[in-house]
Design a protein around this nucleic acid. Sequence first.
DNA 1: GCCTCCAAGTTGTACGACAACTTCGCTATG
DNA 2: CATAGCGAAGTTGTCGTACAACTTGGAGGC
Lengths: 245, 245
Amino acid sequence: MSRPSLRHSIASGLRRRVAAGDLAPGERLPSEPELAKTLGVSRSSLRAAIALLEEDGLVQRLHGSGTYVTHRPIMRNDLSRNFGVSSMIAAMALEPGTVDERCRVEPAPAPVAEPLLLQPGDPVTALHRVRTADGRRIVYSIDWCRPEVLSAEEMSELGDGSLYERLAHRGLPVHHGVATISPEMASGEVAQRLDVPRGALLLTLFQVDSTADGHVVLVSEEHHLADAFEVTVYRRGPGEGSEEA
Amino acid sequence: MSRPSLRHSIASGLRRRVAAGDLAPGERLPSEPELAKTLGVSRSSLRAAIALLEEDGLVQRLHGSGTYVTHRPIMRNDLSRNFGVSSMIAAMALEPGTVDERCRVEPAPAPVAEPLLLQPGDPVTALHRVRTADGRRIVYSIDWCRPEVLSAEEMSELGDGSLYERLAHRGLPVHHGVATISPEMASGEVAQRLDVPRGALLLTLFQVDSTADGHVVLVSEEHHLADAFEVTVYRRGPGEGSEEA
DNA sequence: GCCTCCAAGTTGTACGACAACTTCGCTATG
DNA sequence: CATAGCGAAGTTGTCGTACAACTTGGAGGC
């Protein structure tokens, strides 16, 4: 919200240059002292910025040799980042829209109640939406919140503003989410809303979004038409991190 | 292979401490100067290590306040990392196995030929396997390679060693992969191999693995039984990175 | 032609200093 | 007594310099 720390600014700038092709894949970056001087920052900060890019897999550092731009694939829809459905649709150069929006307070289903630290049946705010791309119904989504976090009115009057922005403005920025992916065949209700025959193939994301301090602020379920968009994940190579002994 | 750079060693150590609960979620880490002194490293290297953890979402830094351990969810199967199917099965405390292994040279299907920079129909090494968990057939996988990279014999004689290890030993370590996820209904062949009725629900991963310099070394297709395991993805953000203007 | 070795260049680590920011207790003030 | 304001202490962020570890390429000798 407040301070884009210097290293993040530098990293953004470099990301832009990579994306724009100013720094081509395989190319070697200028040496750190030189680049730091060019950008007018210290080498320490530049190194911190490059470390961010390296973690993202955009560049690779070779001790004694240089820093090289990785041949990074162009991905259609990377699930590693937490964007809204509208952004995904817009990224495909289609016009995002919303129909059949319904917002009300409902009793929480068990799988939703648990992460929100509620009892099954407790009241939660639920937002049902059908998202369209160029008018075609492609995603049926449901978002659940604790009533103290977002009331039914607040949820319905958000227009095309993202839920994430709304939560951030209330001081509850989403830090990360965990999505469970499963295949599904359209049941009666979902099929009707998406206007597809019963039994049509869907890809379903059940997602739990939390703040940095671990408070779950949003639970959502997205039923995607199988051929709506290609869902992809960037998977970092084996090795380097997270495994124990 | 050769040098686990100091900051990565430090990061691994911290990761272990977090995983072991030595550093509890929400807890503040010792201050950087103090921790650096304790670990016997410079503050620079420690900061670089912490930067890695922060990018991974394990900790969060607050300027002027401290560094705090994030409340990180325990994930069953995180697609963000590139592990083999055997590891996923073992992680669920089940006994991984392989049946119906068949390895031969085949003409490349078009979707496989393209990323491998071949013409459709060109010969490729293909490894078909049915993976089992406690004897139950849950994944049917196919791996494709260029014949110069791995011959049919090399592929079949790898026992339970991972393909990734084999490639790494040949000087072609996998740096990252891109997986496309889609729902699927079991066709005749797949249904037969997995011993499920035709039309059973599957989750299919089509994955392209590359080295750091962008050379595609492996293409694979994994057909997972829908209820085999929960496939999850850790999703960062939104905010912080990758978007353009 | 080939091998060895050296020098230059690059990233990795270390140390010290100061700036920016947060936190919390103390104090002055109403 | 309650409250707003101040300030000191502690923490992360940035800077600068120096040197170590490593790679690369070319000069020189064989």
